[in-house]
């Protein structure tokens, strides 16, 4: 069994209304030092198998097809045994 971690983020330059709203709220709470907020998601998968290389390839496929909207998002994958 392996653990795969997928981080999905908006591509640079894509508008992030949620991040903007969080930034404004942080400013309202006095955290003026925050200059930029980008919100993404973090997905953990438990995957059967031993070949970490192959698992990484398969998870990348899953991210490309489903976990990320690759039109506006990018992703990275980490796999641990």
């Amino acid at each position: 069994m392996a653990i795969a971690r997928v981080i999905v983020e908006l591509k640079p330059g894509v508008l992030d209304p949620q991040g903007e709203a969080i930034k404004n709220s942080l400013h309202a709470l006095g955290y003026e030092e925050v200059k930029k907020v980008r919100v993404g998601k973090f997905i953990t998968l438990e995957v059967e198998g031993n070949d970490l290389k192959e698992i990484e390839e398969r998870v990348k496929e899953m991210a490309d097809k489903l976990l990320a909207n690759v039109v506006i998002e990018k992703f990275s994958v980490q796999v641990e045994g």
Partner: peptide, 11 residues
């Protein structure tokens, strides 16, 4: 693909 814009209805 970069041509696609993202909308913000609250804005």
């Amino acid at each position: 693909r970069p041509s696609v814009q993202v909308g913000d209805p609250f804005m």
